[in-house]
Design a protein around this nucleic acid. Structure first.
Lengths: 212, 212
DNA sequence: CTTCCTCCGTTAAATAATTAACTTATTTAT
DNA sequence: ATAAATAAGTTAATTATTTAACGGAGGAAG
């Protein structure tokens, strides 16, 4: 089953926000909503909303609007939230611990299978019930447990070596918190990368606040 | 001193990466670089690079290329990294601690002035030498210390109330780690917001990894 | 049952962003 | 010195994205 047509990335990047917003509406007991109301409440144009949903076939009905529960479910399906992929987290420094504790992987299509670190003091500790193992064993672990994705929370200085090991372990999906440019280095390896570059985000905020 | 002309946001969002890349080149002892070489190494087109830099007046020289140190400095100036604004961090849960420990605020134009939490167990602790204070005192503190920016790392459930207090305290610049839509709620208040929505990022990664 | 109103899906227009092409200044090599 | 090569700045073309306009299907009301 392949995608109807490649949907533009800007559309995809809006889907999580739709999903979240619809979840809230559902919690408030709402049943239906129109693109016009959605647009007012989310600060978008109604046109964009209809265009976005139509990329996937259109889930509304003329004269009625969208059924919130249905629309939310469809977006979840598009994102793939209902099908889990096995994932490891590498690096339990400050950020790694924050991620391990804070994120709800299950509800977002990931199954946190194990955590790795190279510091023996961390071995055996558990976060969200998942144990910290020795990074030396990561390759074997990944191959035995059908691990597809890795969350990379190691210091920049270790990133190159860690990512190389992960690539060799068959990891194809990277949630990258380092500044190491995984995609650039392994562009021929059929991988996908989503970067979380806090420093970049903060610099952009600094720019935006220049006139304040 | 106002901006020559409003520069497109996509251009701004590329600046931090340029800045970082140029820093690395400098560390490696390089002195000059051409848009063509930059484009190869960063995976962009040379055209885009030249267009981007030209939004700010152009810092290169025909036949020579760009002086790395100069270009880096100019980008830093554009971003405003050399002028610090007083900033507080609110919420020292897992994420707040990770941010407090990991980020180098000084080098990015921010001066971390104080940390706030509502849990008395946290009061008096220090992160990067900055003390945790009682959130009840935040309004007074901000007014006495010319605080302009806030990093919001509280749970979603507390976000609405916390942000309202911060707005009342005169905060104009928000680095927002919650799902509360600050910009939507206070769009008439002349504020700037940069969101770090980890959940959205993870969902996007889930979508991208569907065919893996 | 008929009319009016709502509101999606769709097509068209406008705007924005990226890439390519061109022109000229500067450097390097002969 | 002069010619050839380099490479930025700039203008033009292309492509992508967003917004607007349209037309008809379906719901609501009398």
């Amino acid at each position: 089953m392949s995608k109807k047509q490649d949907v533009a990335l800007p559309v995809i990047r809006r889907l999580p926000r739709y999903y979240r917003f619809l979840s809230y509406q559902l919690e408030e007991g709402r049943e239906r909503i129109s693109s016009a109301e959605l647009s007012r409440k989310m600060g978008l144009t109604a046109s964009q909303i209809r265009q976005d949903f139509n990329c996937f076939g259109g889930f509304g009905q003329q004269g009625y609007g969208y059924n919130i529960a249905l629309l939310r479910e469809k977006i979840g399906d598009i994102l793939g939230l209902n099908k889990k992929i096995n994932t490891i987290l590498v690096g339990v420094g400050n950020m790694g611990r924050a991620i391990a504790n804070k994120m709800n992987f299950e509800s977002e299509g990931f199954n946190l299978s194990a955590i790795f670190d190279s510091n023996p003091d961390a071995f055996g500790k558990k976060y969200q019930g998942v144990e910290v193992l020795d990074f030396k064993t990561v390759e074997e672990y990944c191959q035995n447990n059908d691990v597809k994705a890795a969350i990379v929370c190691v210091p920049d200085s270790a990133a190159r070596e860690v990512v190389e090991t992960l690539i060799n372990s068959g990891i194809k999906v990277f949630w990258n918190f380092t500044h190491f440019d995984i995609l650039m280095e392994y562009k021929d390896n059929d991988i996908v990368v989503e970067n979380v570059h806090m420093n970049d985000s903060l610099m952009i905020l600094r720019y935006l606040s220049k006139d304040i």
